[in-house]
Amino acid sequence: MIDVRDLRKHYRVHRRAPGLWPAIRSVFSRTYETVPAVDGITFEIAEGERVGFLGPNGAGKTTTLKVLSGLLHPTSGDVRVHGHVPKDRDDAFLREIMLVTGQKQQLLWDLPPADTFDLNRAIYDVPRAEFRKTVDELVDLLDLGSLIDKPTRQLSLGERMKCELAAALVHRPRVLFLDEPTIGLDVNMQTVVRSFIRTYNERHRATLVLTSHYMEDVAALCPRVIVIDKGVLAYDGSLEQLSRRVRPEKHVVLRFSREVDAADLEGLGNVVTREPASVVLAVAPADVTAVVSRALARLPVEDLTVQNPPLEEVMSELFTRSRVEREAAS
């Protein structure tokens, strides 16, 4: 269980204008500013849950993950992960967690991933038999094959990320913090990584906290999302509810067998996008059945789907609203 109460993390940042004179002046006198990266957030995550941390750049997602994994000392607030205080970084805590970031790696650059696996076996004191079983399972799930015997520096980004995940799981952590685990990966590799993460969670009942800018990651993995904006909690609940709350309308996507005029679409709903032989309509949920019936009756419909608005749009709308509310309050 992860329990966070009124967490704050403020950074002291040095500010100076560009140019030579400000640079010289900064040698003698500096201006500092306190930036609240996380500003009083509270939430709980149950054991085995998969939670997505969402927010625009600089929202405080990664800072929160770093506090939860013990890398950063919070400015104030109470944080517990499986009963441990992360900033103490005691051995028992470090054995239960792992933070995987898409931008930093633990793999030894000049050596094959197998050496990093073995290093982690020794560091985490994993019995050899259990280690072999775990590595075999990871090699199988991630299709690592002979990759683990090639020097890390000779692996592609996707191959490295798969090996990175495997290295992180050698000691079977009960809590996994994933910060942009699919960043820079191609679509196929993203799917592999997502599927693996989900399998690991289901097989070992590990708690999973994920940040990602790829909404597909969040949609595929996280039934629950926590949205942070400017260090403040903007939403905590299911993705479905979030969509319903922020963008309640449905998108009716129609593809036609021939070109259709704009006039033919009148009365069907708001046109989101239109091309000669296709259209996306925004329709209130209660009107979907009627709109679909009317469209089928009067238009040459070849294909029809009803979807929620894209998550990117939902998030963008949420951030805009939350900013407006904040500005109004201040």
Binding site: M98, L99, K104, Y124
Partner: peptide, 12 residues
């Protein structure tokens, strides 16, 4: 570089 994080996450 921020790579000290990797060390700090290990129980060594």
């Amino acid at each position: 570089q921020g790579t000290l994080s990797v060390r700090l996450l290990r129980p060594v």
